[in-house]
């Protein structure tokens, strides 16, 4: 029984620096304490053992036991994860917690497990919150403002289509070229969660940031199935509970980073920040959601359409729900 969980992720190995390592640090501590050292966790951060997509393969092959993977990296193994890119879905952060901790989270985890066959999904930690759009042309505060802005996206068809539906032009560009691309004007803007915008110093080369909150893209926390099933019942229970605390830690640190000078508070001095009104956001949702749904029904399979329907219902429920009320 017991053993070592080799855990790969793609962020710095400082628990106060990023949600990924906060999550793994909490997980590591609770697992070794809860099993009295029978199960220990060794964390390999900073992409030491490969890209996020390679981590997934290494977990499947039993080389690593666990990883946190981004939706972009998971998409090549499990294309239906794209469903989570439904734009302008969530009203606030709490809604994301409710959706991924609730029935939808369970359904999604089960579907990933069934599709891959060799992993168990233990949760959906926060990667740093909602996406914002930055650019160097002009302030974006309503739908029309996106016209003609050339935005860098990942090589992800859904992200490209969402930007195009807003009226922007979308070009995939290698991550390593984004900063200089923004600096010289090869592209006008980009989209990412606020901590990444801060971390990558995009404020140095961008003038305007709009808190569009149009995407929420969690990590998927997965563990090798054979390893997991080889644990004793009580060890599995400990791992499950540690995973829940890992997810909670990732959310807590994400909110703290947003509030600190490494997040919005720090960016406000360097870049003009705009928040959207409810009406502006509704207009953007109306412009993008039909395009996204057409993309899901055309480019993904029938099960993806079902999953999307479930996702929308779960999100609506979570948006309507209010805390302790």
């Amino acid at each position: 029984d017991g053993g070592v969980i080799k855990f790969g992720h793609d962020n710095k190995t400082d628990p106060f620096e990023n949600p990924a390592h906060a999550c793994t640090a909490v997980f590591s501590n609770l697992v070794s304490a809860g099993t009295n050292g029978a199960v220990t966790v060794e964390v390999f951060g900073s992409n030491q053992l490969g890209t996020a997509a390679e981590h997934v393969q290494q977990v499947r092959d039993g080389i690593l036991q666990a990883t946190l993977t981004s939706t972009g990296a998971l998409a090549s193994y499990y294309p239906r994860i794209d469903v989570l890119n439904l734009p302008f879905a969530f009203a606030n952060n709490e809604a994301t917690y409710k959706v991924f901790d609730g029935d939808f989270g369970k359904t999604l985890a089960k579907d990933i497990e069934d599709t891959l066959g060799d992993v168990v999904v233990l949760g959906f930690p926060d990667t740093g919150g909602f996406f914002a759009v930055t650019n160097s042309k002009h302030k974006i505060s309503e739908l029309q403002d996106f016209d003609g802005i050339r935005v860098r996206t990942m090589t992800l068809p859904s992200h490209q289509k969402i930007m195009q539906a807003l009226g922007a032009e979308a070009y995939p560009l290698a991550w390593g070229e984004v900063y200089s691309g923004l600096q010289t004007g090869v592209i006008d803007g980009q989209m990412n969660p606020v901590p990444i915008i801060s971390f990558a110093n995009f404020a140095e080369v961008q003038k305007y940031m709009t808190l569009t909150n149009h995407l929420f893209s969690p990590y998927t926390f997965m563990i090798n199935r054979a390893f997991y099933e080889g644990l004793s019942d009580s060890e599995r229970a400990t791992v499950r509970s540690a995973a829940e605390n890992c997810v909670t830690a990732s959310r807590g640190l994400s909110r703290i980073i947003e509030a600190s000078d490494r997040g919005l508070a720090g960016l406000k001095d360097k870049i003009e920040v705009t928040a959207l009104t409810a009406e502006q956001r509704a207009a953007m949702a109306a412009a993008t959601q039909p395009v996204f749904e057409a993309h899901v029904s055309e480019d993904l399979d029938a099960k993806a359409a079902e999953l999307l329907a479930l996702f929308k219902t779960a999100v609506q429920g979570a948006n309507a729900d209010s805390y302790l009320n």
Binding site: K12, E17, S46, W175, G176, E177, Y179, S180, Q183, F199, A200, N201, E204, V205
Partner: peptide, 18 residues
């Protein structure tokens, strides 16, 4: 500048590339 290695360093370590 420009320097590919500085871009990699800056984005890995969170240091201002400029």
């Amino acid at each position: 500048p420009p320097s590919g290695l500085m871009v990699v360093y800056g984005s890995l370590m969170g240091v201002s590339i400029a």
